[in-house]
Design a protein around this nucleic acid. Structure first.
Lengths: 165, 165
DNA sequence: TTGTATCCGGTACCCAGGTACAGGCTTACC
DNA sequence: GGTAAGCCTGTACCTGGGTACCGGATACAA
């Protein structure tokens, strides 16, 4: 089940990822090391391109590379046995995505209230009790999510960026 | 408009942040350096606690520290002049949050389809044409968002973690 | 005056998901 | 056989929001 062997740059281009990313995936144990030429250059079977596309798809669905590794390694071990566990994990991920959507909707509500109430000065609003923004410490019973996924990483402004280009 | 001066640890505890975080905010230019004692210890006015709470609130609303810095510095410059620009920026942030929600809803749909279709093996699904998952390269006209905010940072699993504790 | 708690600055490290660069070797084509 | 493109390993760097550790100085109460 393979035609001709592909070199690192060819696989990378066909899958739409950076060649460095391939090496990074090897380091992470996400991709098996392929055979080498006599000179030490990697020679990939064409299926690697499909696998890379699947990995990128899984990332777009919200799986981390660690989770993708588990999925891929699980499939690799029981090759042909069928059950890769994707369905179960997709169900769990679905629940996470739904929680995340709910969190963002709470954030949305607060932003709408801030705009509607005409809050325009952060420090001043924090000091007056009639401001609708929930300034209370979330640990003291606030209802706002922590929202680190929004705040950290590339933040909201990164929405349109591709994971790998 | 100030009672007594607070030391770093006192401000940090009152605002619910780590003392190191205060120094980090100074480094970032988010907080002005307060006066010092003869020995070089920082002495904060009580308003700093309110400001820190406001900063944490803004983070929960999805503003990055860079954006919060702009807000705070803008207010600091035109002290008393009123317009801090929060309303306008909150409007823009609202649009970002809404885009993010829409992206997550697309992701949700795909996950639902994967579960419904019984896809269970990532690599196998990528190889057959009847799989409902959009494996296509997004640059080639796919409709899936990049979702790096989900994938990067602490990912979806970080939803319940607080930005600072 | 001594003891302990706190603070100081500087630096390094954490997470995820890569990207970049240096210096040397291999491959491919003419 | 020459030359250019591509690949190799190893290491460092990037973003964002902090956290941890170090040796030394300060603050404050008994």
């Amino acid at each position: 089940m393979s035609g001709e062997w592909l070199r690192t740059g060819e696989v990378a281009e066909a899958a739409g990822v950076n060649a460095q990313t391939l090496r990074y995936y090897h380091r992470r144990g996400l991709l098996e090391e392929p055979p080498r030429s006599n000179g030490g250059h990697r020679l990939y079977p064409p299926e690697t391109v499909t696998l890379l596309r699947a990995i990128k798809m899984a990332q777009r669905l919200g799986f981390t590379l660690g989770e993708v590794t588990e999925l891929v390694v699980a499939v690799g071990r029981r090759r042909g046995a069928g059950s890769g566990g994707l369905r179960k994990r997709a169900g769990a991920k679905l629940a996470e995505v739904e929680r995340r959507i709910a969190d963002l909707q709470l954030i949305r509500e607060s932003l709408v209230q801030a705009v509607d109430a005409g809050c325009d000065d952060l420090a001043a609003c924090a000091a007056v009790p009639r401001c609708p923004l929930p300034f209370s410490d979330p640990e003291a019973g606030g209802r706002m999510p922590g929202a680190p996924g929004v705040v950290a990483g590339q933040g909201l402004t990164g929405v349109s960026r591709e994971p790998s280009g």
